[in-house]
Design a protein around this nucleic acid. Structure first.
Lengths: 360, 360
DNA sequence: GAGCGTAGTGATAGCGCTATCAAAATTCAA
DNA sequence: TTGAATTTTGATAGCGCTATCACTACGCTC
């Protein structure tokens, strides 16, 4: 008289209480299959006849079914937690990184855990890597952490999937989501050249990050393609910090024949270059053009706003989560580790820091 | 005869598989009570004898038990999701806000959902508020959204708990976590005065944010207390943007007798002031001291690094989550809405942008 | 055509927790 | 001391999902 509770309730009671989502049982019933089959379809498991899969998928769509994250991770006993580890918490694109990762995680019903590794020696990094490998199923590594051999190898050894985000190089043993730094730098250089600049200075990024080298190479390549020789005295070493940009720009602009444009390897250094130019009484972009890279908040904070290369960090973070989840599932199914290199499109954002060089 | 399967496994098998956490059953068994009692204790439910509660809590601590988020939310059928809604995604403290909120959320095993409300009219804001109220159990509102009557009243009407973070004013109908802007501005002003400054300029914040007024009042109060009259021509209106800071500072420094110190209502404007000073050939802090407010990344990006007021945004975000969770639980138990105003300590961070005024 | 493997599917039994209500222990009144 | 009122505790039954294994077809070898 009283029970057969769940199915009865769910199918009969069409007015579900606010927020109560449609369950796998409802989908199963509607499609005329067992919940297990629905589960298999939803999880992309093999061994479901094409016709059945089709039917279930249609039903899922009709009912707008979304698997319940809690139930799923409870049943699967796979606390699919993903760690996002970063250093340098004030890094300008951290917030975008977080937004993207959080978004991807919540869509995929995964818990995202954050970890900050600051001021660590190689040894402590190793230890930390080993520790984190115990408690999560995957790791997202933004730069500069993804450049650390120690961290990467430890993580790889522990067998947990890793995605390096925005790392310049495609690393052999870990997957990555990145833009084409080389091509982007090329485009930016071409952009400058198209305005008529030829005395273009370049401020390099931190030497321990592979993206730095790629950006520089892109610059060189575009200059060469345009038949413009690169004046080595117009190339300064920077370290991605505002401070280092200040020093580099100072040297550049103190010359008796300063460049007509400065291409800084990131926005912080470009902002610093703008500041130095102003200090020397130069107008940007009238007297000198300045461009950056990354499109971090500082690019739109300073005046004039910087022409720069936009990396879609949020989208990259979200897609890292996807990548990771796929690897995790694959790993669980005992399949071999697959390393992918996902290159996403960048955008050259034109703002107000570029103009044609002054005649003469 | 037949069952007791789980208990047997858990107690006998001391080698838990990697990552498998201690369960409520283990705690219960160890403490010699039922799982239900442990659950009650952990959830702060009343109706547990003091002695029992004590015993369970000790056991929990011994075993280092953490409730399984998935199981909990599954069983409680309470998709305790909390929304963090922001506008202006490039706002400098967004990343810290996210870090804090995410941290608090993951500790409390709550899902955090993000939402961006940009370029919205009052009407669309209302609609969005009504919509979000359907899908989450609580909302965190950073400025400037928490100043919107439309949003707040809609949310309050929907009966869902709201916490305003870093809002200057203590609003009558929603809870808040904030610093004492008035007191902080006072302290900063006193700091400047203690260096011997008296011609202190002030750049006000955006007029639609209550924190702006409080900061200005704090400044006035400290000046009055020191017996220094505030020169009204040394007070400029700003809008929290770098650009507005540029204009304000320009006016201030173009005077034939410029101030010896500038107190900007946030870091962006302070950074702009530094830039203007440099442009005019002035050294900071030798020729002019500049201070900001908020301690956002830009404060440590520019050179010299800014003396500013640090708001512990991350901690504030985390504690907002706590507050919210408590409200949600209270609400579920049918208790009356309680509005709290949580004021956290700020810190005056002394860096390199302040010095004694030049003699004469 | 018996024997055996191999998709494809479903029944069953939990994952770790909490809602619910019944049972036990306690308190209090008479 | 007894009975009722109350507090404290426990047993049971799921929350929505998936792991596991059993079972049904169907095709294959010999």
């Amino acid at each position: 008289m009283q029970n057969a509770p769940r199915k009865a309730r769910n199918s009969a009671n069409s007015t579900r209480r606010k927020g109560a989502a449609v369950t796998i049982h409802e989908v199963a019933q509607r499609a005329g299959v067992s919940p297990m089959t629905v589960s298999r379809v939803v999880n992309g498991n093999a061994n479901v006849r094409a016709a059945t899969r089709e039917l279930v998928m249609r039903t899922v769509r009709e009912l707008n079914y979304t698997p319940n994250a809690a139930a799923r991770s409870l049943a699967a006993a796979s606390g699919t937690r993903i760690a996002l580890i970063y250093t340098n918490p004030s890094s300008a694109y951290l917030s975008e990184l977080l937004v993207g990762a959080l978004d991807g995680a919540s869509k995929a019903a995964t818990q995202l855990v954050l970890d900050t590794w600051d001021h660590m020696t190689r040894a402590t990094e190793r230890a930390a890597a080993r520790k984190i490998a115990q408690s999560v199923a995957g790791v997202i590594l933004p730069p500069p952490l993804c450049e650390s051999k120690a961290v990467c190898s430890e993580l790889v050894a522990a067998g947990i999937p890793v995605v390096a985000i925005a790392s310049g190089r495609f690393q052999p043993d870990i997957s990555g989501v990145r833009i084409d730094d080389f091509r982007a730098a090329q485009e930016m250089t071409e952009h400058l050249i198209s305005f008529g600049h030829s005395r273009i200075a370049f401020i390099k990024g931190h030497p321990n990050q592979t993206a730095s080298a790629l950006r520089y190479e892109g610059f060189q390549s575009a200059m060469a393609a345009a038949g413009i020789p690169v004046d080595p005295t117009l190339v300064q070493q920077g370290f991605f910090t505002y401070r280092s940009g200040l020093e580099a720009a100072e040297k550049l602009l103190a010359r008796k024949k300063p460049p007509t444009a400065i291409f800084a390897s990131n926005d912080d250094m470009a902002a610093a270059a703008v500041s130095v130019a102003h200090r020397r009484g130069m107008d940007v972009p009238r007297d000198i053009s300045v461009v950056g890279f990354d499109d971090t908040p500082i690019a739109t904070t300073v005046w004039p706003e910087l022409t720069t290369i936009r990396q879609p960090i949020a989208a990259m973070a979200a897609s890292s989560i996807d990548l990771l989840l796929r690897s995790i599932r694959r790993r669980k199914d005992g399949e071999a580790r697959v390393v992918v290199d996902h290159v996403v499109a960048h955008v050259l954002v034109k703002r107000d820091s570029v103009a044609a060089p002054a005649p003469g």
